[in-house]
Design a protein around this nucleic acid. Sequence first.
DNA 1: TCACGAAGTAGACAGCGTCTACCTCAGTTT
DNA 2: AAACTGAGGTAGACGCTGTCTACTTCGTGA
Lengths: 187, 187
Amino acid sequence: MGPRNRLISTATTLLSEEGVHAVTLRGIAKAAGVSHGAPLRHFTCRAELLSAVAAAGFAELLERGENLRETGPRERLIAACRGYIDFALSNPAMFELMFRHDLVDAQDPGLSSKSSAVFELFAHLVGDVQGEGWHPGTDSRLVAASLWAALHGLAGLWLWGGLAGASFTPTIDVPLAVTLEAYLGPN
Amino acid sequence: MGPRNRLISTATTLLSEEGVHAVTLRGIAKAAGVSHGAPLRHFTCRAELLSAVAAAGFAELLERGENLRETGPRERLIAACRGYIDFALSNPAMFELMFRHDLVDAQDPGLSSKSSAVFELFAHLVGDVQGEGWHPGTDSRLVAASLWAALHGLAGLWLWGGLAGASFTPTIDVPLAVTLEAYLGPN
DNA sequence: TCACGAAGTAGACAGCGTCTACCTCAGTTT
DNA sequence: AAACTGAGGTAGACGCTGTCTACTTCGTGA
């Protein structure tokens, strides 16, 4: 593993253990045991390093979506939805970083390709369920966008704290079930 | 208007015109025509000032929700949903600030009271539609949380750029219609 | 007249991203 | 063998940031 990948790895660890505020160039350099200017030998700026970290986050999300065990299209989509929520709550700092354009460069090729691959996979899962007569005739990517947004907002608001600790639900599974039922019907 | 409110007003203007990155204590001080240390005479820290700005954002959102013209419960809820999206897209920097816990103090009384008031109003609008037989027997706040999250995620992803510029929709109204139909049925 | 509190100023400090000049050293070319 | 080259790392500087502190100014009430 070269120094570039070592910095990405160090930053990823620092991110998950300390949160978004800890992934400063100087903090990453210190955690990697190098001087404060060393990271800029391998990345043109902080955003480029963090973009590589965020791209790894989208890659993990993609991997989760590709390794679904469920066989039925509908069950696969539901599992993917639960997987998205699970990813966000298991990696809150990574989830935050992935959507923070002030920390990450949206134009970064490695990042944008990974994020759009996640969306395309999700749209494909939606399309498979449409083949069973769900939302027929609507663009898969349109339905996928709406459903993804519902999940994304649920994870975001939960982590934000607007729903967690609320009296009406102890866990995110309860509002998640409402969301899934709204889109996919009972069960 | 005292100096405290003048700083809040200046910060709000700076936020909408320049974005989140511009609302630094020193930037606000300069825009207000005072020295860099003056704002800390009226706020204990930057987060307290920005919390007051964000609270004003939630207050405006609350006002929108209270001034809905529609008479029918269902029409009122739909209008509130569209109003949330419209607020986010009309005030993207404010919308971002309101949910950025690294910039704002979630425990700030003025902020948390305003944000929970918005949620309570939304839950009330949901409850009125439930009285017409929609999602009967489910806690209004639970349905409200799920629906709010769907709208919140849609606005967030749109502003993030993951959906905007996508080939499948020119405006946010198209995926929004999908979301509203999923929750509220046709029309 | 004096005291006091609100408000503002100016300087300092550490931490940040970034830039630059310098150093080291393995590998390749001449 | 000597010279060059480029990857990688170091150290210092710059301007920016939030925050703290000491000092000033000024209107008001005792």
